[in-house]
């Protein structure tokens, strides 16, 4: 559908929040904890913060939780009973305050979960999510959405995208999908007709720093480059980058048994860990950190576009912000583009 452009007063956002609560929506929005901005279930509008460039973690947990019991079993006299996840038990979620680089990530993640096998649990969870995006009027040194095809006012992935028209101004609401229209119908009176609005002039300028297609082309002959070792010397080998990333989708399956009952749990995993590729024989095809770092970049900028026609990076900069060793992915991608071999 074509986007329907409306205006919502700054003071009306709280009223919208209340209307959604009245419609039994679970609202997940950015909130402050331990000095970090995280997505949390918000019961009151006052818990939501609007003063942030980006949340520490991505919103991927709404469809791909860090730890998810995918089935439970129990053994009794009659035999075995197995229970999976019932879609009816999944709440209707409104994701509030998502930045465009996060909203677009949901599509990239979806591409992975629907590559060959259609991941029913992921798809069911996602079907219950409505994304309220908020454009960016601020950016920092880590942001690079424009280098990977995005922009600070990108509508892709959002059901409604709000853009604040100047500091303390009202908001332009671009209603982009059926799900978005449904939200509007819950508080129709708050959405006024928008006159002519030049949205772009209220967006932050994020300069283009590299070309993702050039990086992709370079990577086709870059596998043996010494650059990987050089870049990854300071990498400590943790999984912070993968866990805050909106498109990292690797997981591990664990069985937790307690006597006659138990459960099967899907847990996040990361290609940054040496254990990730360790074989039963003791052989590890990615023995050292440089090979793991190479995998991370190759996967996002070569394998994903080749196989899924999407890049695995939204330019949100979270991995660089979260990195305890200040591995700055933007710098590394620029050096790959500029490398002569």
């Amino acid at each position: 559908m074509n986007s329907d452009r409306r205006l919502i007063r700054k003071d009306s956002l709280e009223k919208l929040f209340k209307a959604l609560k009245q419609n039994n929506k679970t609202i997940i929005g950015p909130a402050l904890q331990n000095g970090k901005i995280s997505y949390k279930i918000s019961n009151n509008y006052s818990e939501i913060t609007s003063d942030y460039i980006q949340t520490t973690q991505s919103s991927k947990e709404i469809a791909f939780p860090r730890t998810e019991k995918i089935l439970a079993y129990s053994k009794n006299a009659e035999g075995m009973s197995v229970k999976g996840i019932d879609i009816k038990d999944i709440p209707e979620i409104v994701l509030w305050g998502v930045r465009p680089c996060d909203a677009i990530g949901i599509g990239e993640l979806s591409a992975i979960f629907n590559w060959d096998y259609k991941d029913e649990i992921f798809n069911n969870r996602l079907s219950k999510v409505t994304v309220l995006g908020f454009s960016c009027s601020k950016a920092d040194e880590y942001c690079f959405c424009t280098s990977v095809g995005g922009n600070p006012g990108n509508t892709e992935g959002s059901d409604i995208l709000f853009t604040q028209l100047g500091e303390n101004g009202d908001y332009l609401a671009e209603i982009l999908t059926e799900k978005g229209s449904l939200i509007v119908s819950m508080a129709e009176a708050l959405f006024e007709r928008a006159g002519k609005v030049e949205k772009e002039k209220f967006l932050v300028d994020v300069p283009v720093r590299f070309n993702h297609e050039d990086v992709r082309n370079k990577l086709t002959t870059f596998f043996e480059s010494g650059e990987w070792v050089q870049q990854s010397l300071k990498c400590l080998g943790c999984g912070a980058c993968a866990y805050v990333c909106p498109t990292c989708a690797c997981f591990d399956i664990q069985d937790e048994a307690h006597g006659k009952s138990g459960s099967r749990v899907r847990c996040w995993d990361s290609c940054g860990f040496s254990l990730f590729t360790l074989h039963t024989s003791g052989h590890n095809p990615r023995e050292v950190q440089s090979q793991r770092w190479r995998q991370r970049i190759m996967h996002k900028f070569s394998y994903m576009p080749d196989r899924l026609s999407v890049f695995g990076c939204t330019g949100c900069g979270r991995c660089s912000r979260a990195c305890p060793a200040d591995m700055n992915i933007l710098e590394h991608l620029i050096s790959i583009q500029e490398a002569t071999v």
């Binding site: 995280s38 860090r66 400590l236 943790c238 999984g239 912070a240 990361s270 860990f273 305890p324």
Partner: peptide, 11 residues
């Protein structure tokens, strides 16, 4: 909140 990225261990 811990999601076991093991950054504490790595650092």
């Amino acid at each position: 909140p811990c999601f076991k990225c093991y950054a504490c261990r790595a650092a």
